[in-house]
Design a protein around this nucleic acid. Structure first.
Length: 494
RNA sequence: GAACAUGUAGCCAAACUGGUAAGGCAGAAGUCUGCAAAACUUCUAAUUGCGGGUUCGAAUCCCGCCAUGUUCUCCA
């Protein structure tokens, strides 16, 4: 490994050297989507950012256990209804049908963007027992109380007894939070407005409900992540990721639950990805500027001039740092599209290139340059996964690749060693780390039609040698030419 | 209203925790080409939001202002 990996830890607001608890193993938990609708492009950005984190850690040789949950219960909308059941009622479907439908959609989308699936993808409903257990434990430890069939986490008590730690992750002061929420609505079962639900008694119309000793109800949203990360990664693990909007209160509550139940905060490094904007404005449904991954790919949206391929979008996202806001605009996407083509062509050229003895002698300067660029790829990724900088370095390698390709630079000048390193580094970083792959938007059907046109004219000219050759070549690709009475058709070889 | 971010060429976006501004797109010229495209070479473009301060030196640190964003203010 070249250099040291540093990550920006939200917990300390500093870049820190990444040291796993049990190398070579790394445990990483990322908050997944609530599957009540099609996955939002902002979600995609977050998951692609952590896909790169996962990929780079593996690239460095770590054995990563990547856990990303599916939230299928407990996440409430602003009207107080469960997001899943609200949608289920609306569509007159079973909640689990909603869950399945949008989980499938989510998986399809992530696959299109070439994201490596998590190693474990647990769901909240699948871990109800464990959530009940943790709630009991919190009551036992004195950090939770039952009130009218619901169970709440006692934030102030926890805060006092644990080094005033509530708010540490999000940089909030409990006094400020309290003064901001001074007015308690009379109907609340909570002791303090800061308290959050671990178990919530279900109202009569609530359709997702389970029987427990406290009431027939459902688990609080924050609880599932504490439970599932602890179960699969342990009381202490390495990385916890999620969108910046989850930092407070979701992740803050998660830490409190962890500490309150087993004395450890969970992850040692907390990573947060930034938000997506469109033409400088926040992407939101109410502003009418949000779009689905599908719409971005097809271009079927009033704000888009055209569609952009999944790899173009992935490349576009990689061109900024995950902790910066990223702005979507036609101009920016168009620039990314062309940039991606340039990089992909470099990838393709280099893939088909082998070092060959030719004229000239070793040019030390060239060798140094190539080695330096290769090193820089590591330094860039080591610096808190700076994909944007990495891509900049890759473009510098593309220049070398193209120079070799056009003969402006000879193989002999750079030597086999530097060439092999360049090839390994370039392909390793672009494909394995950044997850970019060559995608062809070539319409193979149109291509076949073009060749068949050739076939037809050769036949018309009675150039049977050429006819036979074309037919054989197509057959080699699994395509059968069918000479009909008045036309020529083709089919896949059975 | 509060907290925390962000503000870099026409557009997007980096800058390894102060040392004199990567890279991509767009633009210009040239090489190559039947013509293109691609590719290559070279070039062009930034007083780093505004105003102060610290420093030999600041995009980077401090203060104020402006703009934008996120979270919180009602939240289970």
């Amino acid at each position: 490994m070249i250099g040291k990996l540093k990550v920006f830890n939200s917990l300390t607001r500093q870049k820190e050297e990444f040291i796993p608890l049990n190398p070579p193993h790394v445990g990483m938990y990322v908050c997944g989507p609530t599957v009540y609708s099609n996955v939002h492009l902002g979600n995609v950005r977050t998951f692609l950012s952590f896909d790169v984190v996962n990929r780079y850690l593996r690239f460095l040789g770590y054995k990563v256990r990547y856990v990303r949950n599916i939230t299928d219960v407990g996440h409430l909308s602003d009207t107080g209804e469960d997001k899943i059941s609200k949608k289920a009622k609306l569509d007159q479907l079973e909640p689990m049908e909603i869950v399945q439908m949008y989980t499938n959609d989510f998986h399809d989308v992530m696959l299109k963007f070439n994201a490596i699936p998590p190693d474990i993808e647990p769901s909240a409903i699948g871990h109800l027992m464990e959530q009940v257990e943790m709630t009991k434990k919190l009551i036992e430890n004195g950090y939770a109380y039952e009130s009218n069939g619901s169970v709440y986490f006692d934030v102030e008590k926890f805060h006092k007894e644990n080094d005033n730690s509530y708010g540490a992750l999000s940089g909030r002061k409990i006094e400020d939070l309290l003064s901001e929420t001074r007015d308690l609505d009379g109907g609340s079962d909570k002791k303090s407005p800061l308290d959050f639900a671990l178990w919530k008694k279900a109202s009569p119309e609530h359709i997702m409900r389970w029987e427990t000793e406290w009431s027939e109800g459902f688990p609080g949203w924050h609880l599932e992540c504490s439970v599932m990360s602890t179960k699969y990664l342990g009381e202490e693990f390495d990385i916890h990721g999620g969108g910046m909007d989850l930092q407070f209160p979701h992740h803050e509550c998660e830490i409190a639950q962890n500490c309150g139940s087993h004395g450890h905060g969970g992850a040692r490094y907390w990573l947060h990805t930034n938000m997506l904007t469109v033409n400088g404005q926040k992407m939101s449904k109410s502003l009418g500027n949000s779009f689905l991954p599908r719409e971005l790919i097809s271009g079927d949206h009033e704000l888009l001039n055209r569609g952009y391929s999944p790899m173009t979008i992935r490349f576009f996202m990689m061109q900024s740092h995950y902790a910066s806001t990223l702005d979507f605009s036609n101009d920016a996407l168009e620039a990314a599209r062309k940039g991606y083509i340039r990089l992909a062509n470099g990838m393709r050229t280099l893939r088909g290139m082998e070092w060959a003895e030719d004229e000239g002698e070793l040019n030390k300067k060239q060798v140094e340059q190539i080695n330096k660029i290769c090193d820089n790829c590591y330094y860039a990724m080591n610096d808190d996964f700076n994909t944007a900088l990495t891509i900049g370095h890759l473009f510098n390698l593309v220049k070398k690749v193209n120079s070799l390709h056009t003969g402006q630079l000879n193989f002999a000048e750079i030597g086999k060693e530097a060439f092999d390193r360049m090839k390994e580094t370039f392909i390793g970083f672009s494909e394995d780390v950044l997850g970019l792959r060559i995608e062809s938007d070539v319409d193979y059907k149109a291509l076949i039609e073009t060749i068949l046109g050739e076939y037809k004219s050769a036949k018309f000219n009675r150039d049977f040698e050429r006819v036979d050759k074309l037919r054989a070549e197509l057959k080699a690709e699994g395509i059968i030419v069918k000479d009909m009475k008045d036309k020529i058709e083709w089919a896949f070889e059975e």
